[in-house]
Write a protein that binds this DNA or RNA. Structure first.
Lengths: 139, 139
DNA sequence: ACAATCCCGACGAAATCACTCGGGATTGAG
DNA sequence: CTCAATCCCGAGTGATTTCGTCGGGATTGT
């Protein structure tokens, strides 16, 4: 979630906050964030005043990881999946010449997903503020 | 459909033949091929001995055209569609920074789809035979 | 005339998506 | 210690899409 990127470094953010900001139902976010946690992208702290945090800097989190965590292996068609585990040899595979097309499409998708990080999606405002603070405090 | 590419130049192919070759229900193919016809990619001849033919050489038919005909505008998410007609300004668009990601993904997809033609998907066997015949007959 | 073929609209089953519900487990604050 | 805030988690729902069926009509070569 982009919101977590925005909030990176400000301590755990509760689902209630995020739900308010994103205007999404809290219960739904729970499911999404659980996948992200299972994938090791976010960490949770329980109890009052708890919430979720990124486990790494936004710049190091590829969007491919996020998408894989949220939607499973990247595959435009199930006969052209990312993940050898879930490879499905479609019954027509022998004659099916279309597969190469899907594989190329998939590679194009994963390529651009790999080339973007969470940081690319957080609105630059807050980052600029961070920089400013650094500039003001340091000297 | 790739089968039509394979059969290009051999006169109209009936749905019954294609259905047999592809092992797909004929009634279903009807729907698909109707979209292709509406898009001008195939032409039909009715009556006994009729069927469908490509309207152009396989080499000149981009897979992007085929996919658009079959599945509508290319869009990984509806807020990042190909076709300005069906553009949907999602209600969160103001704050939604994710859109650029989808646009890039979409461009990657259309790019590879644009770069492949039907000819790239027809198995080379028959083409090779054609070449062979040409080579044998000519001298 | 008749059989092969396309034309076409309506229907249906299954999967997926976006989301809800309800109740537990953990933990900081008072 | 108690309590409220918070995460944890499985089960359920409604809309939409996808893949496919059905039935009957319109054309046309033989």
């Amino acid at each position: 979630m982009v919101q977590l990127g925005v909030r990176y470094g400000t301590g755990p953010a509760s689902l209630a906050e995020i739900a308010a900001d994103e205007d999404l139902p809290r219960a739904y976010l729970e499911q999404l964030v659980m996948s992200l946690r299972d994938a090791g992208l976010v960490a949770s702290t329980r109890g009052a005043h708890g919430g979720y945090e990124l486990t790494r800097q936004p710049e190091t989190i590829r969007m491919s990881e996020v998408l894989r965590a949220l939607e499973g292996p990247i595959a435009p068609m199930l006969c052209a999946t990312d993940d050898p585990e879930h490879a499905v040899t479609c019954d027509r595979s022998a004659r099916c010449t279309v597969n190469v097309l899907w594989v190329r499409v998939r590679d194009a998708i994963t390529g651009t997903l790999e080339s973007m990080t969470l940081a690319d999606l957080v609105p630059p405002r807050l980052v600029a503020v961070d920089d400013l603070q650094g500039a003001l405090i340091a000297p």
